[in-house]
Design a protein around this nucleic acid. Structure first.
Lengths: 151, 151
DNA sequence: GGCACTTGCATAGCGCGCTATTCTTCTGTT
DNA sequence: AACAGAAGAATAGCGCGCTATGCAAGTGCC
């Protein structure tokens, strides 16, 4: 006796839902931080630099888990927009240190508040417990995929 | 007496995790379907057309919840790659119907198997119950954000 | 019938992810 | 000291999101 395979449908596909959810998150965040002159990837990068200024591109790449070329382009836009300045690394002639401008430093509160508002809104239909569960499950899914990246 | 606000950190931000998870999903899917000559957005579009052929661009836009311009570009690439053909709609001179080529029709099994494999892998650390919970929570988050889009 | 409005689609331009390539600057081995 | 390989970064080129426009074909109202 054989079983009919469940059809592959977008509403039961974790990948499809993840993509859809991330697009909606991104769109909402974009709407909220655009008035501050920020784009989503710039905000993510600032999040690291607010925590520790003067990082190299390599360090940012590792912390945000994006490709080097992606970060290079994001940093170029951020430099263009007056959010960062870059200067040669004192110990390594190949590397550059990334420093926040006063403008970028001053955006911290408003930008994190905007991001928090977006998260709160998105999760507003979930109980406190459910939010914890969702974060935990997402972290585990991320870890699973990351662990298998090149192994 | 005041409470110290919990700092905004990427590991506790649903939006950040959603973005990271979606990127990993997308990358994994891309790797698996690239040998078939497909890109992720093309696969999503095919998923609809495999279910019902001859849809208009407008219908695809509604079903996949992307902007019209995004779909227009995706369809252009799919036509270029020989996955679809388009012909004028019989009842509406503005619209076009989107028809699968035999090539695209034949890709259904292999492509859905690849997507299923990616999902299974990503969720391999989760119990059956947990997978259900994750899907349910993601659907509710999606719904919350979608409901507030222009209200 | 004619004119305003709407609607389906295409295009331009941008952000941001990716791979692949190239350049420069270390670093380690001999 | 020299040279091979590794490592940091920039660039080209593409997929795929988005907004903003523009155009042609339907629709409705007078």
């Amino acid at each position: 006796m054989t079983f009919k395979k469940t059809a592959f449908t977008k509403t039961t596909s974790a990948g499809y839902l993840a993509n859809h959810m991330a697009r909606l998150f991104g769109h909402g965040l974009h709407r909220r931080i655009q008035p501050l002159g920020l784009a989503p990837a710039q905000f993510m990068t600032l999040l690291e630099l607010w925590g520790e200024d003067g990082l190299t591109q390599k360090q940012l790449v590792e912390r945000l888990d994006v490709e080097q070329a992606t970060m290079a382009n994001t940093l170029r836009r951020m430099e263009r927009d007056g959010l960062i300045t870059r200067c040669p690394h004192p110990d390594d002639g190949r590397a550059h240190q990334t420093w926040l401008t006063p403008t970028a430093r001053n955006l911290r509160e408003a930008a994190t508040a905007a991001a928090q508002a977006q998260n709160d809104h998105a999760l507003s239909d979930l109980s406190e417990d459910e939010r914890g569960v969702l974060l935990d499950l997402m972290r585990r899914v991320v870890r699973t995929m990351k662990d298998s990246e090149d192994g």
